[in-house]
Simulated scan of single mutants.
Amino acid sequence: MSNATFSGCMLWLFAVAGAMAASGCSAIKSTDSFTLLTELPPGFSIKGEASYVPRTGEACTVPPRKGRNYPGLKFFEQKLSNDAQTARFEVPLTSKEGGCPLVLDSFGYEVDAKYGAARLDLGRDYTGIAFQDGTADSQNSSSPMTLQKQCEWFFRTIGPDRYIVKILQCKSVATPEQANGSVAKGPLQRAQLAGKTLKVVFDISNEEKPAVGDNWVKFPTGWKRCMGDSLEAPYAFCDGNKTDFKPFKMPDGRDCTVYPNCTE
């Protein structure tokens, strides 16, 4: 597994002609931040957004954006790799930019995953972590704490040639140590994380499912696409007909009759 390390440095991103760019970084005291390790399967990339709100009891508001600097948001990125990888981010728990004491409210992930060679052969979903006030001794503060994100592919066909496309969905699930699932769904207490490590593990399910109900029939060899009223029918619901099926194309252009094995 390769490691992409963002050690002690925060990546500020801003939009320029539709692109994200870095604008600098600074050292962060470990007692006022936590280390966020994000484990990604092969073919995954992420963008992270840490969102800040005024500290409890403060009457001020989040300072407005000034040029490249946005006190209420801090951005992180881990680029796609064909191998499994681990991103390491140092995430501030507080911010004093603009004169308003701010605290971390949430960390949102934009998750992209490739399923084919073409530029647009990718799925995207959003997930995240919520944070709240608390005390350092109010719960188990072992480090690293682990959160699990389970991702799944849902497939469907589009267009007159019935090309397979995939939709990515990622959700929080409990780890074996979190039998009741409460930690998995948060929110987490900021005081528990100061100077510690939080690990977020993204897994991808081996089983894929149809994205639209009553479009496919499952056989021992794989899924077959229902015929519907005709080859040209764009929705082609099975509607009880489990004997007539139509071919489709894989993202790489192969003509197939069963998914994901292509041929029976």
Rank of each mutant, 00 (worst) to 15 (best):
L36I: 03
G43Q: 06
Y235T: 13
A22K: 13
Q85A: 11
N82D: 15
G98P: 09
W12E: 14
M250P: 07
A17M: 14
R65P: 02
D255S: 13
D121L: 01
D161E: 15
K199A: 05
A15E: 15
F154M: 06
C9E: 14
F76Y: 15
P187W: 01
L80C: 03
A136G: 04
N140A: 09
V62E: 05
A136W: 05
F75T: 14
L102D: 05
R190G: 03
I28T: 09
K96L: 12
A136C: 03
L193F: 02
L122F: 13
R254S: 13
W223L: 00
F44H: 08
F155N: 05
E49H: 10
S95P: 11
L193R: 02
P144M: 01
E264R: 09
D112Q: 09
M250Q: 10
A118H: 11
A179R: 15
G213N: 13
R190K: 08
R156I: 03
L11R: 09
N3R: 09
K149T: 01
D229N: 12
F76Q: 08
R162D: 05
R88M: 11
P247T: 06
N180I: 00
K242C: 10
R190L: 07
T5M: 10
V91Y: 01
L231N: 15
G181D: 02
G228C: 08
P247M: 02
V91I: 11
P220L: 04
T56V: 08
G18T: 04
L122C: 06
I164P: 01
E177G: 10
A15H: 14
C226K: 03
A4P: 07
M145P: 08
V258R: 05
I164V: 11
C238N: 06
V217I: 13
K246I: 11
G116D: 03
T61K: 14
S95F: 07
I28P: 11
G222C: 04
V111F: 04
A236G: 10
T94W: 06
D244S: 14
E39N: 12
N140P: 13
D121K: 05
C60P: 09
G98E: 07
S142L: 11
V91K: 00
S33N: 00
E58S: 12
P71C: 03
M145R: 13
P144W: 03
N261M: 06
P101K: 06
A19Q: 12
T221V: 13
I164A: 00
K47Y: 05
I204P: 05
L198K: 00
N261Q: 09
I164Y: 00
E39P: 03
N3V: 12
G128A: 04
T221D: 15
V62I: 08
T94Y: 11
S95E: 09
E97C: 04
L80F: 01
E39R: 14
P92H: 01
L40D: 03
V16S: 12
E264D: 15
E58K: 08
T94S: 08
I129W: 02
E208A: 12
Q189P: 01
N180V: 00
S143M: 12
R124S: 09
G8T: 10
G134T: 00
A233H: 11
P187S: 01
F89I: 03
R225D: 08
T94E: 10
P144N: 02
L93V: 00
A17F: 15
G108H: 06
V173S: 07
